[in-house]
Design a protein around this nucleic acid. Structure first.
Length: 797
DNA sequence: GTAGGGTTAG
């Protein structure tokens, strides 16, 4: 084995064997290992392409360390070995090591392939700018970009801002390089135009037209060309065009079929998705794990339990012994499916039995817990997770924010940052919504500044959250300013802004904005109608509210659900139109549930309609016996009517059933700290000063006509005691504290969990006049702006 | 030795 000839023969043999190993899919480490062992045993020293091939095989078989060991043994690794290792590190997500090999390689050794590998490394590791920069460097260093270069660098476009500019420049570079007729390059270009078209602020139609004309003029189209244009239309919401293309070819384009199924699924068009799947089988297109994953997910969302189970069985039958990376996404979809269909045990069993789990598997379980409101389970599951990505954090943050655990959501947001995750716009949205729950304007503003600093100022989710935050912190103008300056808005933004105006009692402006939205061609959804009817309700715009309610089904095809009916009944009852409200109730296509009776009861309380109120309350006792609000409203009704005995009966009923009234709690933000107060609070460190301040203030108020309205004290006690209790309502304490602590003349913004008390409402009018400051109170339902003796709600709330 | 399409978690 020592003559040059015998070495050459051995090299040829080994080379051939390794080539066979590489032809396997995936590359076969099991076959290659004995070949390598034989080399060592026979004393054969692999060099050149044999060594490179070994490095390639090891690095593609999760034996990256061993590949590196072989590489380090080479005195002068050639460009092929270096390129192989760059690609290997890139695939392992280690951009640093790829970069190190790249920069350690002298210019005279390099070639175009070497650059291509590094451009791809950047692109695969989400550094689009570096990829484009390297593309420029490569030309500066006089290396000609080839078709691989263009497909790689075009792939990186998706990762950068100003896609369009780069796309057009690269298009020119392609033409100049002479690769403008190469199918793979044209495919990549089409794909880039598609991605540009799909970015939110783009002129989608002209960019799609560009993609289309590239496709039409291609000298040769392969399956990928067809797939790219079809998936392009799907991404840009033109499923009809996609379908037409799919019908126009006899090629077996499994990927395009899958894209269409998921395209329909994402738009909630479940029947179309199933129909697509049916046709796919009829056309004898090979189903793969992507198909199953999408269809199972459709079953989950459409609640098709039997079909989903059949799909599960079908998958097990069609794909025997699936590789883990094939089975994993299907199992993930199955977990969601079974859980959503109420079979939590089966879902957990699938999860527990999975041989390998990825982050999606973990996040699915996490999001299921959050979605059903089990935050304790979610938290402990979150702690058990072996690894987390930014989405895991977002699920927790927005889950906590939406279930009212705002402080905890903000803690998670900060923990996430400490763990080294740069907050994305969704994470910000969760944190910002938390500020809106807490009414923490200061913190909200800080987050707004951070949103800008992190480059998310044009993000829809962050922007929409900010609109809500400013509005719910009482600063409607800031919300409006933001809304107007957002580069692009969606129906959610419009809804948020309309809601903002509505909650602040600016019903007419809310209606104007709603009309403007219609003029802009934005289709109102169910939320839009909930919002605009509420806005009418808060401002007493009965006629308008009715008009919108009637139009939603007749004109916009949005079927009113129970919540809509509850809002319209609320609107009518507040206006004292009980017979009309009853008529609406009778016209409902379903039995009235709790939200309807609650609206009715609230209206009865305002107008002292005791008989109807009792009826509503009784229905609510049946439907929601554990809801404290019903007892409180009914007892308040009796109290206002002076029927103390009846009131006492309700209170007793409440006690007997083990119910406790949710305590009224008010809070105010002073110097970055939230101070909260309960009625008759004795826990706040400055409580004495607050009571003294209030006492003085009430004296001043009495001088200009304030008389405490004792009917809002809900105990049958002596009159002066009643007055004392009134003066210690939590909202009064919070407002007084604001007067004492906030800078002179600053608006006092107070938040309360329940509705504002009638006497407090009256008192704040006087206070605003005596102190000459604006008071903004957000109660459980809406906002009150007190200025110069008047409230923005016009006493209609 | 290097590239390009579709899935499941918000």
């Amino acid at each position: 084995m020592t003559t040059p000839d015998s070495i050459r023969t051995a090299a040829n043999r080994y080379g051939f064997m390794l080539q066979i190993c590489c032809l396997q899919s995936p590359i076969s480490y099991t076959l290659a290992r004995p070949v390598h062992a034989h080399m060592i045993a026979s004393g054969f020293q692999p060099r050149g392409h044999i060594l490179n091939r070994l490095i390639d095989i090891y690095s593609k078989s999760s034996k990256l360390n061993y590949a590196r060991y072989l590489f380090d043994e080479i005195p002068q690794p050639d460009i092929v070995a270096r390129t192989t290792l760059i690609a290997a590190y890139s695939a392992a997500g280690d951009l640093k090591l790829s970069r190190k090999i790249f920069s350690d390689t002298p210019l005279r050794m390099r070639d175009s392939v070497f650059y291509n590998a590094m451009i791809t490394a950047y692109s695969h590791n989400h550094d689009g700018h570096a990829a484009i920069e390297l593309f420029c460097d490569m030309q500066r260093d006089n290396f000609r970009p080839d078709n691989y270069t263009f497909t790689s660098v075009l792939g990186a476009l998706a990762l950068v801002a100003e896609k369009e500019k780069h796309c057009q420049q690269l298009h020119c570079a392609v033409v100049k390089s002479g690769t403008g007729f190469v199918t793979s390059v044209l495919n990549a270009l089409i794909s880039s135009y598609v991605k540009c078209a799909a970015s939110p602020s783009a002129q989608s139609s002209s960019l799609m037209a560009e993609a289309r004309s590239l496709f039409d003029e291609m000298p040769n189209r392969d399956e990928l060309s067809w797939t790219t244009i079809i998936t392009g239309y799907v991404k840009n919401n033109d499923l009809d065009a996609a379908k037409e293309f799919l019908n126009g070819t006899s090629k077996k384009l499994g990927v395009a079929w899958n894209a269409m199924i998921s395209g329909y699924a994402h738009r909630g068009l479940y029947l179309e998705a199933f129909e697509m799947f049916r046709k796919m089988i009829m056309s004898k297109i090979q189903l793969d794990e992507f198909t199953f994953t999408s269809v199972i997910s459709v079953c989950a969302n459409a609640g098709c339990f039997r079909l989903g189970k059949e799909m599960h069985a079908y998958f097990l039958k069609t794909v025997a012994n699936p590789a883990p990376d094939v089975a994993m996404p299907v199992n993930n979809a199955l977990i969601t499916f079974y859980w959503k269909c109420g079979k939590v045990d089966i879902a957990r069993e699938i999860f527990n039995k999975m041989p390998e789990r990825d982050l999606v598997s973990w996040n699915i379980i996490l999001s299921r817990y959050v979605n059903v409101g089990c935050m304790d389970e979610a938290k402990s599951f979150f702690n058990e997770m072996p690894e987390k990505n930014i989405l895991s954090w977002i699920i927790m943050i927005s889950g906590l924010a939406q279930t009212g655990f705002a402080e905890e959501a903000l803690k998670f947001f900060n923990r996430m940052k400490l763990q080294g995750f740069d907050p994305c716009d969704y994470a910000f949205a969760g944190a910002i919504i938390s500020c809106s729950v807490l009414g923490s304007l200061k913190h909200g503003r800080q987050l707004h500044a951070q949103v800008v600093r992190y480059g998310h100022e044009s993000s829809l989710s962050a922007g929409n959250a900010l609109i809500t935050m400013y509005a719910r912190c009482g600063v409607v103008d800031a919300a409006h300013c933001l809304f107007i300056n957002m580069p692009c808005v969606d129906a959610v933004s419009w809804n948020a802004m309309i809601a903002a105006l509505g909650q602040h009692g600016q019903g007419t402006q809310a209606i104007e904005l709603f009309e403007e939205m219609l003029k802009e061609g934005i289709l109102p959804d169910r939320i839009s109608f909930l919002t605009v009817i509420s806005a009418c309700s808060h401002a007493g715009l009965v006629k308008e509210g009715r008009k919108y309610f009637d139009s939603m089904h007749n004109v916009y095809g949005v079927t009113p659900d129970e919540e809509h009916y509850a809002r319209i009944i609320d609107l009518l009852c507040r206006a004292g139109k009980f017979s009309e409200a009853k008529e609406v109730m009778e016209s409902m296509p379903f039995e009235p549930g709790a939200p309807i009776w609650e609206a009715l009861l609230a209206g009865c309380r305002i107008h002292g309609n005791i008989d109807l109120g009792i009826e509503a309350a009784e229905r609510l006792f049946e439907l929601k016996p554990q809801h404290d609000g019903t007892y409180v409203l009914l007892s308040n009704m009796y109290a206002v009517a002076g029927q103390w005995n009846d009131m006492a009966k309700v209170r007793k009923l409440m006690r007997d059933r083990g119910m406790k009234k949710e305590p009224g709690c008010s809070w105010i933000e002073v110097e970055n700290k939230v101070h909260s107060f309960l009625v008759g609070d004795a826990n706040h460190p400055e409580v004495r000063q607050i009571y003294n301040y209030l006492e003085q203030l009430v004296l001043e108020m009495r001088k200009i006509g304030y008389v405490p309205d004792t009917k809002y004290v809900l105990h049958d006690v002596e009159s002066d005691l009643k007055e004392h209790e009134l003066s210690t309502h939590s909202e009064k304490l919070a407002v007084a504290y604001g007067f004492m602590k906030l800078p002179h003349g600053a608006t006092v913004r107070v938040f309360k969990n329940l509705r504002i008390c009638g006497d407090c409402h009256n008192a704040f009018k006087f206070m605003s006049k005596v102190v000459g400051r604006e008071i903004v109170v957000r109660d459980g339902k809406r906002f009150h702006h007190f200025r110069d003796g008047k409230c923005s709600c016009g006493d209609y709330w």
